[in-house]
């Protein structure tokens, strides 16, 4: 279908974008790569009165090395993220997960920041942000603020970004040496959304797991840290048996939905199985 009519502002700077959103009121929407928003407009699931396009804001299109973290502009495409040498070297969990998102054409337009701001519970990249304790830099009429991942994802398609605010960048801490990473995605067909996904980063030293960061895709309204699995793994041996035992609690405290693709019970089963697989692969076993 053809979208409903809307006004359009191409923002040149973050300040211009915020000013346009303030003027546009609650019916204004931010457009980045558009790979989630434009299907919504075409299916007329949403009819914003104003679209504020931030996809060409220079400040939002670069990746800056801050030493212990990378500051990834919200308009950097998924394709650019997965091919960035710094991301590949220092945040490999993000690089390998980005490579599983949708398809080449979608990745050429879609953005890491946009995926987080859209906050689809089946989105892969928000899970990485949650696993790595990313921070979100948000600009609004009152200036800029930084929100931790644990406080950013609030509900289905709902984040801490207000209607008059713009997500400017995502700060992702570097993992450092000794970490292995893996992303497991269970999907019905090649380009389908994750029925369940598991992002894992695991640090091993001398056969012992000394660090674990695990987050789940589509096991609730937001990406969820599997904290009990992390706690059970740390200090234990990097063996299949220990990993399977720790992964048994992967679905504890989650609230998966039941839909035509999978029941909640099946999703819980998938979370346990794929957590064990992701952790084992991340640990190199």
């Amino acid at each position: 279908m053809i979208p409903s009519a809307f006004d359009y502002v191409r923002a040149g700077t973050v300040d211009e974008a915020v000013a346009a959103l303030v003027a546009g009121g609650e019916d204004a929407k931010v457009l980045g790569g558009g790979q989630s928003l434009i299907p919504v407009l075409r299916l007329r699931l949403n009819n914003p009165s104003l679209i504020v396009d931030v996809s060409t804001v220079d400040e939002m299109r670069s990746i800056v090395d801050e030493g212990s973290s990378l500051l990834i502009g919200a308009a950097v495409t998924t394709d650019a993220v997965m091919k960035d040498a710094g991301v590949q070297a220092d945040i490999p969990l993000l690089a390998i997960t980005a490579a599983t998102v949708a398809d080449r054409a979608i990745r050429h337009r879609g953005t890491f920041g946009g995926s987080c701001a859209h906050a689809d519970p089946a989105g892969d990249l928000p899970t990485v942000a949650q696993a790595l304790d990313a921070e979100f830099v948000i600009a609004g009429p009152g200036g800029r603020r930084t929100v931790a991942a644990k406080d950013f994802f609030l509900d289905f398609f709902t984040t801490a970004v207000g209607p008059d605010e713009v997500l400017v960048a995502v700060r992702v801490p570097k993992l450092g040496a000794g970490w292995g990473v893996n992303y497991q995605k269970f999907q019905r067909t090649a380009q389908a959304w994750a029925i369940v996904g598991v992002a894992a980063a695991v640090k091993t030293e001398g056969g012992t797991i000394t660090g674990a960061r695990i987050a789940l895709t589509n096991m609730g309204a937001t990406p969820i840290r599997a904290s009990s699995v992390e706690a059970a793994l740390i200090g234990g041996p990097a063996t299949i048996e220990a990993i399977k035992a720790a992964s048994a609690s992967a679905a504890d405290g989650t609230k998966p939905t039941s839909d035509t693709h999978a029941t909640a019970d099946f999703r819980s089963h998938l979370a346990r199985v794929h957590t064990a697989r992701a952790v084992a692969k991340a640990a190199g076993i």
């Binding site: 457009l31 790979q35 299907p39 075409r42 299916l43 054409a105 979608i106 050429h108």
Partner: peptide
């Protein structure tokens, strides 16, 4: 399609594939 799944409308934009039903002409 109307869902950005099918890829029939793929074109090259500055040398990279994009689904031309999934971006605005103004972009």
């Amino acid at each position: 399609c109307d869902t950005s799944n099918c890829g029939a409308c793929t074109v090259l934009l500055d040398g990279q594939s994009v689904k031309s039903c999934n971006m605005l002409a103004v972009q």
